[in-house]
Amino acid sequence: MNLTLRIWRQAGPDTPGSMTTYQVGGISPDMSFLEMLDTLNEELILRGDAPVAFDHDCREGICGACGMVINGRAHGPERTTTCQLHMRHFEDGDTIDVEPWRAAAFPVVKDLVVDRSAFDRIIGAGGYITAPTGSAPDAHATPVPKEAADTAFEHAECIGCGACVAACPNGSAMLFTSAKVVHLNVLPQGGPERASRVMNMVEAMDAEGFGGCTNTGECATACPKGIPLPSIAAMNREYLRSSLRGGR
């Protein structure tokens, strides 16, 4: 496959960037999107140009490191992570636009790399359970209802890739935050910190400069892990419940 790529190039956080056009050939339809970028980068290095910077780690769709907006869609046309997107979903001769996540809370570091540490700070505000650590407890020490376990697992699938923020016209982190809040708040282990968790995490989310939710549903459409839109409703319910009861 021969492709024309229009890629956002930006040398650093404070330098202006622009879309730059590249031609890349010899692409196999079985390559992942990242392998295609690797091919381009090898050519760029041989030419003495700076390679395109992008985040990646596990390359098996579970770490959430890779992420770029491909033809206006977070992670591209398939509902998966960029590393699991294969070139067979494109046609020979296609022009593909590749851009970084766009959000005020995710400043561009270089090219396609953005700083997602705002997510870490939201997690730090309550996305965990304060519990004595040590040896693993017995599996049935705390009974968990099946429905709660399923809901928790569905939300625990969030890998924090940031596609929800990138897809949202308001740069909102509601789906990410709701995945983290709901995951722990439905479990008995998360119960004691149920109120403080949602209040502190929403406060941290607002403080990072993410936008609000206008229920466009773009986030849930883009999510590679299928976190559902009603999760946001569940977090809203937790938030209102906590604040009406005096909070935290």
């Binding site: 907006v69 206006g72 766009r102 005020a104 809370a105 740069g171 909102s172 993410f210 936008g211």
Partner: peptide, 15 residues
């Protein structure tokens, strides 16, 4: 106002 400020730069590829 907050929402617009949270997404200051648009995508080049609009849909």
């Amino acid at each position: 106002r907050r929402d617009l400020a949270a997404r200051p730069s648009k995508y080049a590829h609009q849909r």
